[in-house]
Design a protein around this nucleic acid. Sequence first.
DNA 1: CGGCCTTTTGAGGCTACTCAAAGCCGGTGG
DNA 2: CCACCGGCTTTGAGTAGCCTCAAAAGGCCG
Lengths: 248, 248
Amino acid sequence: MDIQRRTVDCHRCPLQACKGLRSLDPHQLDFMNTFKEGEIALQRGGMVLEQERRSVHLYTLLEGVLIRYRELEDGRRQIVNFMFPGDMVGLQGAFDDAIAHSVEALADARLCIFSRDRFPSLLGEHPRLGYDLIWLAAKEETALEQHIVSLGRRSARERVTFLAVWLLDRAIGSGIVAEGNELRIAVTQVQIADMLGLSQVHTNRTIKSLAHEGLVEWKPGHLRVPDMRRAADEAQYEVRANSCRPFL
Amino acid sequence: MDIQRRTVDCHRCPLQACKGLRSLDPHQLDFMNTFKEGEIALQRGGMVLEQERRSVHLYTLLEGVLIRYRELEDGRRQIVNFMFPGDMVGLQGAFDDAIAHSVEALADARLCIFSRDRFPSLLGEHPRLGYDLIWLAAKEETALEQHIVSLGRRSARERVTFLAVWLLDRAIGSGIVAEGNELRIAVTQVQIADMLGLSQVHTNRTIKSLAHEGLVEWKPGHLRVPDMRRAADEAQYEVRANSCRPFL
DNA sequence: CGGCCTTTTGAGGCTACTCAAAGCCGGTGG
DNA sequence: CCACCGGCTTTGAGTAGCCTCAAAAGGCCG
């Protein structure tokens, strides 16, 4: 893990140019520049947050993909969500003593560091940014809600298909390249299983079966959904208008 | 459903006196009074929001308990969460065209109505309330996270026990009477099943089995957990410091 | 080439599901 | 007052989906 204290200028933030994200105006950027404390770079497998620890930081994901998960005492693990560029990490830690989940880099990642102490001043001085923050929180809630429906009411086939479609949709929305409905992302079958509440073995069999039917092609280094419409149908995925996400 | 347009004075808001909730100061109450549009009263079974509809309102639950659920096209239903007094309802609808879930009264309920149009002015004029709103959103996220862990990684026994303990904990935190760890609340087994991602039949058998062992006593009109410590242990429920919840 | 991580395949078993019907209880109407 | 009804709970029987254990095969890297 490589922390850089030197403040990188927000005016050159890579997210600013990101398709699918709504860029900040110069005034807001000036403020964010004072709010920003530095950056952190992680390799695949690196930890951003660790369960039961306290954290005094908030993060915005600049590059890469993260997973957020919880572990039970007996070792069972449940991945709660995936995070893409523009997502805010650690908001829950801003209010709690300890965080209830860990966050790990799924692909090499770069994050922007903010101090939670200055958080109230952000709301006071830039209500618009506060509005965006609530927007992000509400969206995250919607995502968790969908995930809950999957875990509670969908079959293994549907869960895998749903996750595949959702990941692609989400990646495209974050401006990540996904030509031909193909996403270059390394998710292991154990991770998929831990996301979907399935065993690794059953996950494997389900993936193979879906590949055989041409619904989802999920290989070690990448994920492809040949026919989004058909897959979305199969999983009862509702394609929502991909409005521009804000970020800070 | 009984809508009252006449503004009931926020200074006499029942939540102000609620143990477990942090009351607003007079200045904030003045503002909320201008923000408030009226009240709505619902009987058990009444709908606050309906899936796929648009909503121009936000609500704060004043009395009663609500459930928030999603339905798939083929009739499968998944309850996402329970809502208690002080909870904000419909925040997601403030940003989206259509809401992805329905909200129904589990017990006779009373809600406070706000217009979403005036939402930005709340943030501008009362950053502290904005902060509280984010606090609530973060907490809701934590709750959904726990629910996800249950659905994904806990057995039926653990799920039922977890839900029972969580409901009691949550009710106590909202100042609802629960003497002797007993909560007077009418949740049907179908609703429990729809919350926990189980079939109604299996839910019934699980409840009976837990009752037999004296872990959870869940009868038609009420819920009792004889030994919270033991039940929490069984379900790997983490008792968190029940800090005072804000509300608006 | 060997070691490590991940995927694949096999076999057997349990958890939870479906279908089906009966019991219960409170409310309503004859 | 009792018969009937609708919603909820209980119980039975059979089964399917998913799990666990176990081991082999594949891929990447030093």
